[in-house]
Amino acid sequence: MSLQEFWFVLIGVLFTGYFVLEGFDFGVGMLMPVLGKGSDTRRRVVLNTIGPVWDGNEVWLITAAGAMFAAFPEWYASLFSGFYFVLLLILVALILRICAIEYRAKIDDPVWRARCDIGIGIGSWLPAFAWGWVFANIVRGVPLDADKQIAGSAADLFSPYALLGALTTGLLFLLHGAIFVSLKTGGEVRADSVRLAKLLFAPTALVVAGFGLWTQLAYGAGWTWIPLGVAVLGLVVAAVAVSAERDGWAFTGTTFVIGAATVLLFGSLFPNVLPSTISDAFHLTIDNASSTPYTLKVMSWAAVIVTPVVLGYQGWTYWVFRKRLTVDHIPAHTGLPLGPAKD
């Protein structure tokens, strides 16, 4: 395996980790108004399922973007300039979600918390759909010209395939989040999340299967039938587990679906990193978009040393906060009252 291939695979692994872990974060944020309906205590139970881990999950995106910048600067430059507006919206939405989660409990006021919940919702719904749209366009190809600039109009990026990609990640993260809440909670919140997961499963499976088959037939390679098969198997496992209310197996199933779908996308893309719909001569590949061999070599040694430490620490975090939550575990609000103090 060449250094260029190694870093392409590593970036794929980083995005896989991001979609699996941040995927249920997005799902939890999107489902807060539904699963938390009726009381603020229920909303706090739902939000606290990701409380210890959501910020660590976002590190996968930062690392993936940094690896893309260092290993494939031409890919990074063309992608982030051509998709600038959408990626900026994702960034703003993530910042809004961060602020809303961190400051929600700082002030003891229902209006304040309701506004923070809106921020959490925007910061979850928008990226969940936008990431599918972005990666569908990357796999399909963009009007990349000889100067490595994305030409054409915005309408070129809103193809039926790209829109189906957006719907796929949105629904898949919703289902993944509902199953995660059922895995992490007990009592009435878990009962409602299980019921919601059962309702979401059929439309999600239909959309995921359609997008996966379209990707394989239009852009896939011979070996990418394997991740497509793994994704189908994951859907079957999740379906059986959701029906039997086996939360751990259901979460394992959707995890495999997201992971296999990401492998399918990156496998369909290889050896390109950003195909051009104008001419094959304008494709960005792992060879013409990469950094120098010396840069890749230094980065590889750093990745080999640091990556196991980061993975070990994050795994330990999930182990420490593995217990289920119920409404009985939620203490009273301790935030400051809104407005001037009263005698």
Rank of each mutant, 00 (worst) to 15 (best):
residue 142 V to C: 01
residue 108 D to L: 03
residue 139 V to W: 00
residue 142 V to W: 00
residue 85 F to E: 09
residue 97 R to T: 12
residue 27 G to L: 10
residue 113 R to D: 01
residue 118 I to W: 12
residue 41 T to F: 01
residue 137 N to M: 06
residue 93 A to K: 09
residue 105 A to M: 02
residue 74 E to Y: 04
residue 143 P to N: 01
residue 53 V to H: 11
residue 97 R to F: 05
residue 129 F to R: 08
residue 88 L to N: 00
residue 113 R to S: 10
residue 68 M to K: 00
residue 53 V to Q: 07
residue 40 D to R: 14
residue 110 P to M: 11
residue 124 S to F: 06
residue 114 A to P: 00
residue 26 F to V: 05
residue 32 M to I: 15
residue 42 R to T: 11
residue 56 G to S: 08
residue 48 N to K: 14
residue 70 A to Y: 01
residue 23 G to W: 05
residue 117 D to W: 02
residue 131 W to H: 14
residue 64 A to V: 07
residue 41 T to R: 15
residue 42 R to V: 08
residue 84 Y to W: 07
residue 32 M to W: 05
residue 101 I to W: 13
residue 37 K to S: 13
residue 98 I to C: 10
residue 61 L to A: 12
residue 61 L to T: 09
residue 144 L to E: 01
residue 134 V to S: 03
residue 87 L to V: 05
residue 68 M to R: 00
residue 61 L to V: 07
residue 59 V to Y: 01
residue 27 G to P: 11
residue 106 K to P: 00
residue 60 W to T: 09
residue 120 I to N: 06
residue 135 F to R: 11
residue 44 R to S: 15
residue 36 G to T: 14
residue 143 P to W: 00
residue 100 A to F: 00
residue 141 G to Q: 00
residue 100 A to C: 02
residue 113 R to T: 10
residue 130 A to W: 03
residue 58 E to Q: 15
residue 21 L to Q: 13
residue 121 G to D: 06
residue 125 W to L: 15
residue 124 S to P: 10
residue 96 L to E: 02
residue 41 T to W: 03
residue 46 V to A: 15
residue 121 G to F: 13
residue 124 S to R: 07
residue 28 V to H: 03
residue 113 R to C: 00
residue 29 G to M: 06
residue 41 T to G: 14
residue 23 G to Y: 07
residue 112 W to I: 06
residue 49 T to P: 13
residue 133 W to C: 07
residue 68 M to F: 03
residue 97 R to N: 09
residue 65 A to G: 14
residue 66 G to H: 00
residue 109 D to S: 15
residue 136 A to R: 05
residue 76 Y to E: 01
residue 120 I to F: 03
residue 122 I to N: 09
residue 70 A to K: 04
residue 103 Y to S: 05
residue 141 G to E: 01
residue 35 L to G: 13
residue 90 I to A: 09
residue 120 I to V: 15
residue 123 G to E: 02
residue 124 S to G: 09
residue 117 D to C: 04
residue 56 G to Q: 08
residue 102 E to F: 04
residue 64 A to H: 05
residue 52 P to Q: 07
residue 97 R to K: 14
residue 30 M to R: 11
residue 46 V to E: 07
residue 60 W to Q: 09
residue 96 L to D: 02
residue 25 D to R: 10
residue 140 R to C: 04
residue 72 F to Q: 08
residue 74 E to S: 13
residue 62 I to E: 03
residue 110 P to S: 12
residue 115 R to Y: 07
residue 127 P to G: 07
residue 107 I to P: 02
residue 88 L to G: 00
residue 25 D to M: 08
residue 72 F to I: 07
residue 66 G to S: 08
residue 35 L to H: 11
residue 58 E to M: 03
residue 90 I to E: 10
residue 87 L to F: 04
residue 94 L to P: 00
residue 93 A to R: 07
residue 55 D to F: 03
residue 109 D to G: 06
residue 31 L to Q: 14
residue 49 T to H: 11
residue 65 A to W: 01
residue 137 N to G: 08
residue 81 S to L: 05
residue 29 G to Q: 06
residue 140 R to K: 11
residue 130 A to R: 08
residue 57 N to R: 10
residue 54 W to S: 12
residue 143 P to R: 01
residue 66 G to I: 00
residue 35 L to A: 11
residue 133 W to Y: 10
residue 44 R to N: 15
residue 100 A to Q: 02
residue 123 G to I: 03
residue 24 F to I: 12
residue 61 L to H: 05
residue 111 V to S: 12
residue 36 G to P: 14
residue 130 A to M: 14
residue 135 F to T: 13
residue 26 F to S: 07
residue 54 W to Y: 11
residue 82 G to F: 02
residue 101 I to R: 12
residue 27 G to T: 12
